[in-house]
Design a protein around this nucleic acid. Sequence first.
RNA 1: GCCACCGUAGCUCAGAGGCAGAGCAGCUGUUUCGUAAACAGCUGGCCGUGGGUUCGAGUCCCACCGGUGGCUCCA
Length: 583
Amino acid sequence: MAEELLADVRDNPHDSLDMMRHSTAHIMAEAVVSLFPGAKYGIGPTIEHGFYYDFDLSRPLTPEDLVAIEAKMRESIAANRSFSRTDVPKLEARQVFASQPYKLEIIEAIPDETVRLYRQGDFTDLCRGPHLESTGQVKAFKLLNVAGAYWRGDEHRPMLQRIYGAAFETQEELDTHIHNIEEALRRDHRRLGRELGLFFFDPIAPGSPFFLPKGALVYNLMVEFMRKLYVKYGYQEVITPQVFSADLWKRSGHYDNYKENMYFIESEEREFGVKPMNCPGHCVLYSATLHSYRELPLRIADFGRLHRFERSGVLSGLTRVRSFAQDDSHIFCRPDQVQEEIGALIRMMHETYTAFHLGEPRFTLSLRPDKRVGTEESWDRAETALRDALRSEGITFEEVAGEGAFYGPKIDTFVKDALGREWQLNTIQLDPNLPERFELEYIAEDGTQQRPLMIHRAILGSIERFYGVLVEHCAGAFPVWLAPVQAMVIPIADRHAEYARAVAAQMAAAGLRAHVDERSERMNAKIRDAQNQKVPYMLIVGDKEAGSNTLSVRLRTGQEEKDVPVAAFLERATAAVASHAEL
RNA sequence: GCCACCGUAGCUCAGAGGCAGAGCAGCUGUUUCGUAAACAGCUGGCCGUGGGUUCGAGUCCCACCGGUGGCUCCA
């Protein structure tokens, strides 16, 4: 076996960090194999912040095992073993990995005649590289957790144990990363939802949130915001049934393609399905009347409740639920109206994300998949319309080949939650398929019957999911217009309660949500509680304020402003609400 | 659904075969206070559910339900 030692390329810091992470994964595999003789190992790539490696072991790993593995890894690092690289013929590689079925499978999948091996000490792995020169170059790492993962991501194949680890150039960066994880847990929407009295879950209805009064208030404010945009952008809201005969789902194609995600009911010997989406119902609504080309585009909005059966293991707070509503809408239009509609949609999205202080989500444009219906020309037209609309609105986006729906391309937006998991917020899809299935028509200028196109679109997407992401994004400190309690009036002593109530009444008259904290507590405790509830404005009133019709304003940032006339504060607060300002 | 872990007071958690615990919250008093926790007392439990082992089970075993982190899935 011809061995050569070489230093792999390390042109930029990113590559070298990646290389270090990957080498750390090898060192972990070395440790696992030495601690668990007979261990079979799968793959061990780098990921954001670190690496993982999958193992097939005789027993489940415990947290103590992780400690032992980590200790073994530090031994290897202290020994500073060099990584050596060898290219060998496949035949030889098969002998090296004779007892490693997963590696043999990978070898078979490699088209080349030779494969590359990396070795440190007694441990050899099949790997493309590159790697560090030696184990001693690993800087800061920590093993984090164990999780199950199917071999090759296939649920019909064995489940391996995946160990996740973090690795960085410096201990400080690693410490920061671990601190970030803890911080993220602190702003987890499930925790904040309970602490702020917004919503909760009960095993009596898995995956289905209960929104408490404060939480429902915020929910309804979100809906109200969308309703205002609907007026501005020419949408018409409708209310449609919750439960439909299975005939509808057969016609729409959901019965064949989405059945396992739906709830069915039998009643009077007929089968009914609870709606998981609004589109088929909207097609029924469209075809209930005759339409002229003059009516198009027809924008139908619906906040109807949707139910989707999700497998128990995938449920997660508000971000993955079984019961939710969307700010859903279907736009029926002529082909020549598509681009303009998409442009308006993007402007609408922009306006929304600004008001919610969400920042720009990540946009993708999903193009034609292999399995598709329709002509190449219609796909060209549809993709171009979406692409041009995104460009002309100045959106940066990534094109993803093959990810479109079988009937049309789509634009998706994504945001990350506190734990860095990315969630799809919404989707804009061009759909000629449903109008076809439901034989939708409009009367064209020349009197002929034509088929409209349908655009499925939501901006918030699932309101529940959006809510969860928003709570985490602002760590529970909603922009004033969304805050369930906008101002807490805090009387210093009981004798100030009357003035406090008068102030709160003025706020209420101005349309603000203000409360008076009349509990027999010290002012400090009231301030603390209001701070913890992330109330935007705390209005402290004592002898001084009551005597001069003023307020001492404390913002939730801790900033204080004294001797503020009540009228001046009202003006400031109502302006902040109207402009959707943060504070 | 799969793998691992976790379910004890409203919340956060301790208790690991031998009397069910703490802090916060809640309730009742006292306190009337100037920018992030006043003081005292009291209440609160089918230890997720069902079975088993044992003289004895929050504690050990099995099943189920729910949750968490992944995996798979996600028009």
